[in-house]
Amino acid sequence: MMPTVEQIRQLLAGEPGNASLRVEREELVAVATFLKTDPQLQFDFCSCVTAVDYIKQDCIEVVYTLYSVALKHGPLSLKVRAPRALEQCRVPSLTPLWRGCEFQEREAFDLFGVRFDGHPDLRRILMWDEFEDHPMRKDYVPPMDYEWEPTPHGETLARALAQGGTVPTSARESKK
């Protein structure tokens, strides 16, 4: 269901700095186009695009923070959720509307695995191209290429002992 100008106005006035609008994936592009083109809203500046991994709710939420340069209002957060499973984690891309989403959507794809349909050039941006897996997900397990550190702590010490690495005298003594 498309929001009306009045609803958006109320959102912006009600919680200044915290206005957010949750939409479904199917209506994302329509709502975004409306927000951008409506002459009373004119959200022409997409400031921040990020993804949040809500592992407990089993979804990844993509958040678009919009401002208006022409009318100097904002921010409005546009939130859309997608399932966590990699094959189903797809969201329509808003890069055709706001060019500034280009790199940030690439980053969300790189680090979270969210595929943006309609993005002109969706590939990894921060990690190297051959990297597998998506590091910022909550269930990401880093690879076991642990480099020896002389003052291991907690889980680092446990990993060192498990891998048969050497630990310094001070750490060994404390185990006595």
Partner: peptide, 9 residues
Amino acid sequence: ELAINASIS
């Protein structure tokens, strides 16, 4: 226009 659209600041 490109500057605004591309979120240049």
